[in-house]
């Protein structure tokens, strides 16, 4: 059974058909990239999977269970973690408390009123931070972190509920090349260790082609291609729709990264 499977997903806003009849699946441990030009429907698709939007029609199956229309927090409880395009942490908490919060929620201890939160799951939180290389800043306020570090902390938070699937929206947005590769390498290593599947959107083609096991391409709300890096690279339709004609992929990729 696939970890995640989309079937005939549709979503319109007013008269605009943002996602049309999209369907694909992610296997266990698969590292799947979703790409497409701006307005292709990536974010809409993503937000339907994580529960922020309800689809007009179609199914989103998580290990066979239809999660379409569930609230984000319920989807998370089913083992779907996520990171945000614009990093979101709890600014008034320290780094380790951010991770602890996720662990507390995972253990269903949110409504406890007595024992201090800081004594809940601290060791586990520090361990997760160590895995993303952030143990040194564990006791700093999270809002003081550099942008790249926040992304790593988000990763630790996302791993707190032992997810089966990780949704990453533009994980490397706003990063330099080496930082970008560093982060994705880290993600890849952690998910491979744990057998987690990943669905991510990404503008930087270098990252996509270097790391993705498989790539799906959206354009104007439709899925137009699905395959490994080589297949996508050679797909005429992708080249046409996504990049226009007559340009090399490498050049376009770097433009994409700047966008």
């Amino acid at each position: 059974m696939s970890v995640l499977e989309l079937r005939g997903l549709n979503k319109s806003f007013g008269g605009v058909h943002a996602v049309r009849d999209v369907g694909f699946a992610i296997g266990k441990g698969e590292f799947l990239a979703m790409i497409g030009p701006n307005g292709a429907g990536k974010s809409t698709c993503f937000n339907m999977i994580n529960g922020q939007l309800a689809p007009d029609s179609g199914e989103i199956l998580c290990e066979g269970r239809n999660i379409a229309g569930l609230a984000p927090r319920d989807i998370w409880r089913l083992g779907v973690g996520r990171t945000f395009q614009v990093a979101a942490t709890f600014g008034s908490m320290t780094v380790v408390e951010n991770v602890q919060m996720a662990l507390i929620s995972h253990a269903r201890e949110t409504y406890r009123l007595w024992r201090p939160a800081s004594s809940h799951h601290r060791a586990r939180a520090l361990e997760l931070l160590a895995q993303v290389g952030m143990e040194d800043v564990a006791f700093r306020p999270s809002r003081e972190l550099a942008y790249g570090d926040v992304k790593r902390v988000e990763l630790a938070i996302a791993l707190a509920n032992d997810p089966k699937l990780l949704l990453m929206d533009e994980p490397t947005a706003g990063m330099g090349t080496s930082e970008r590769h560093g982060l994705i390498e880290l993600v890849k290593r952690l998910v491979v260790e744990r057998g987690i599947s990943v669905l991510f959107t990404e503008h930087s083609m270098d990252v996509v082609f270097a790391f993705a096991d498989r790539i799906i391409v959206l354009a104007r709300g439709r899925l137009i291609a699905d395959g490994d890096a080589a297949t996508i690279r050679d797909n005429e339709q992708v080249r046409e729709v996504y990049f226009g004609t007559g340009k090399t992929f490498a050049l376009s990729a770097s433009q994409g990264a700047k966008a």
Binding site: N50, A71, P72, R73, W76, R77, R82, F84, A88, T89, F90, M101, A102, S105, H106, T110, I157, A160, N161
Partner: peptide, 8 residues
């Protein structure tokens, strides 16, 4: 957003 995304 983040709070909802970790099940709160």
């Amino acid at each position: 957003l983040r709070a909802e995304a970790i099940g709160i």
